[in-house]
Simulated scan of single mutants.
Amino acid sequence: MSGFSFGPSILFCPADRPERYAKAAAAADAVILDLEDAVAPADKAAAREHVVESSLDPATTIVRVNPVGGETAREHELDLVALAGGPYRVLLVAKVEDPAQLDHLQEAGYSVIALCETAAGVERAFEIARHPAVVALMWGAEDLVASMAGKSSRFADGPRAGQYREVARYARSRVLVAANAAGKVAMDTVFMDIADLVGLQVEAEDAVASGFAATACIHPSQAAVISMAYAPSAEESEWARAVLAESKVQPGVFRFRGRMVDEPILRQARRIMG
């Protein structure tokens, strides 16, 4: 979607807490007003009213709507009724499992961030990413594991404590590759341990090194850590400037600071330079 900022830090904000909207928008590069999991069923109607009455920048505001079909079909319909004609045109659609679920959103002119957070959604990520309405993919670890009757996405103890289990790593990689293969934005999921900013930093640094363009978060304190992790270091910026300058006088493959440089390496340098 032209003109929309996708991060790198994207902060979830419960839609039934309007007093937090401005703070969330100020803390991160983009904000997600959450009408789904963050809001109890009895509070969803009021949450929709709060979203409609808000005045955040549409260029940095996403609305997470309830899933299409199933038990939440009516909630999804009510979300769209409330948002119709409003300024917020980017929707994070929960639990997408079939690209056909997004046809009505394309017809309504929405841009969609498809959240692949079930076994079916992860397995169809490549098809979902190619839907014309989709501008980005995000994945979700806990809902994915729950959809398979699992217990947790991370190891609780032992030498791998805090690390993702293999099934979560598979889903993360699959959604990342699917998004990039379709030329769409890849967004990493939230880091649930709010107090562990070091763990968040490590995971965010891995995300940007792997090819994600943004990382979602659940607390304002996490946004700054994510933005810092995605920002190139002084050394990376210097290397990128230098190798790009060298490429202008050495066309084709060349040796630079002991490393062979070809077009994929130059693409990395261009990405660092923005």
Rank of each mutant, 00 (worst) to 15 (best):
Glu49Met: 02
Arg130Asp: 07
Arg17Tyr: 00
Leu197Met: 04
Ala209Thr: 08
Ile62Cys: 04
Leu56Gly: 07
Val225Gln: 05
Leu35Ala: 10
Asp262Ile: 02
Ala125Cys: 02
Leu244Tyr: 03
Ser152Gly: 15
Glu36Met: 02
Phe212Ala: 09
Ala27Gly: 06
Tyr230Lys: 04
Ala168Leu: 11
His131Arg: 09
Ala171Val: 04
Ile226Tyr: 05
Glu53Ile: 00
Ser153Ile: 01
Leu83Tyr: 08
Ala240His: 05
Ala161Glu: 13
Asp188Phe: 01
Ala216Asp: 01
Asp16Glu: 13
Arg174Val: 07
Tyr170Lys: 03
Asp34Asn: 07
Val225Ile: 14
His104Asp: 15
Ile128Met: 03
Gly252His: 08
Tyr21Met: 13
Tyr170Gln: 11
Arg255Thr: 12
Val249Asn: 14
His50Tyr: 15
Val31Pro: 06
Lys151Phe: 09
Pro264Met: 07
Leu102Tyr: 06
Trp239Val: 12
Gly86Gln: 13
Pro264Asp: 14
Gly121Cys: 08
Asp143Leu: 01
Glu117Lys: 02
Asn66Val: 05
Arg48Ile: 05
Glu236Ile: 01
Ile194Cys: 05
His131Val: 01
Leu80Tyr: 05
Phe212Tyr: 15
Lys248Glu: 15
Gln268Asn: 12
Ala47Phe: 10
Leu11Arg: 12
Pro99Glu: 10
Val225Leu: 05
Val31Leu: 12
Ala141Gln: 12
Val96His: 10
Lys151Glu: 15
Gln163Leu: 13
His219Phe: 07
Glu117Ala: 02
Val253Ile: 15
Leu11Asp: 11
Arg89Asp: 14
His76Met: 13
Leu56Gln: 06
Ile10Trp: 13
Val190Asp: 01
Gln106Glu: 14
Arg174Trp: 11
Ala181Pro: 00
Glu236Trp: 01
Phe254Asp: 14
Leu197Val: 01
Glu166Lys: 06
Val90Gln: 13
Glu19Thr: 07
Arg241Phe: 06
Val225Ser: 08
Gly150Glu: 11
Thr61Phe: 00
Arg165Phe: 02
Asp262Ala: 14
Pro8Ile: 13
Cys217Met: 08
Leu33Thr: 05
Val93Leu: 05
Glu77Ser: 10
Ala100Glu: 11
Thr189Lys: 00
Ala73Lys: 12
Glu117Gly: 02
Gln201Lys: 14
Ala28Tyr: 07
Ala146Trp: 07
Leu78Gly: 02
